[in-house]
């Protein structure tokens, strides 16, 4: 890993420090140098023989483990003045509680996409999350109960699959004003899935924020992942061998998205002597 740039090193810190709410789970050392082809046990991907540019079925993983930062985030006045701004890391993950959307957009664990006529399912390995994206023409419900992954509807614009998500549960169990739009487009060789991602959160931003993600087709098999199996990191359950947290819990106003404003605070460059 020679030649590591400061920002890259810093972002490694980001991976470590921001892991919880970012759902940047698992995925240790190999990092950027490892290709998905050698990533893990393989399965027979019969679906790869499909030829449609709209066939996204399969297992996908982000090759890099570093989320793109939101450069110069357009913070509103309240957010800019807040001292508890933008922690991508609260204690939810350490308590094995669900990670609200859009944290899944940052996952370094593989995801698996299933397409049915009426619904597209995305399985996120961490927490065994299964996200339903309705494609049967329904609209977002009015005054529905909020959910950790919100309510998603999808449609096609050409060969781009557009997903609109609202009604995400906030930490107060009320619907948050977070609104996301994902635009999935597969490369011609069908090995790359690009996501243009737009995040609206008027609690924080004065305008929508756009980032990109790229997932790569992989033969990795999705494994089960149960957080409650042996969670020794719950800050609510201190014990002689429990490892509890240093930083205070914070709310999740950035939806778990690191920005160049919060990265230093929550993912300091650990290569620099203090």
């Amino acid at each position: 890993m020679g030649g590591t740039t400061p920002i890259a090193t810093r972002l490694r810190g980001a991976l470590a420090a921001g892991a919880g709410v970012l759902a940047l789970l698992g995925a240790a050392a190999p990092a950027a140098s490892q290709t998905v082809d050698t990533y893990g046990p393989t399965i027979n991907r019969a679906v790869s023989k499909a030829k449609s540019a709209r066939d996204f079925r399969g297992v996908w993983v982000q090759r890099i483990w570093v989320p793109e930062l939101i450069k110069d985030p357009p913070l509103n006045a309240a957010a800019a003045a807040s001292t508890k701004l933008a922690s991508p890391q609260d204690s939810r993950g350490a308590k094995c509680l669900p990670q609200p959307w859009p944290n899944g957009i940052n996952t370094p664990y593989p995801i698996e996409i299933f397409q049915l006529p009426e619904v597209t399912l995305i399985s996120y390995e961490v927490h065994g999350q299964l996200r339903r994206i309705w494609t049967d023409g329904r609209k977002h419900p009015v005054d529905a109960e909020p959910a950790w992954y919100g309510h998603s509807i999808g449609w096609w614009e050409g060969d781009t699959f557009v997903v609109d998500t609202t009604n995400i549960k906030g930490v107060d169990n009320e619907p948050s004003p977070v609104h996301t739009v994902e635009r999935y487009t597969m490369s011609k060789d069908r090995k790359q899935l690009d996501i243009d991602f737009t995040l609206e959160d008027p609690r924080i931003y004065t305008r929508p924020v756009k980032i990109k993600r790229t997932f790569y087709l992989t033969d990795v098999e999705i494994l089960e992942w149960f957080c409650e199996e042996n969670n020794r990191n719950n800050p609510d359950e201190p014990g002689p061998l429990n490892l509890t947290h240093g930083p205070p819990a914070a709310t999740q106003p950035f939806g778990g998205i690191l920005t160049d404003r919060n990265v230093d605070k929550y993912a300091p460059d650990l290569s620099k002597p203090k």
Partner: peptide, 14 residues
């Protein structure tokens, strides 16, 4: 830290 990133986790490593 330049050698390899810490194992990523479901919680902060701070």
């Amino acid at each position: 830290l330049a050698a390899a990133p810490p194992a990523l986790a479901h919680h902060s490593y701070s």
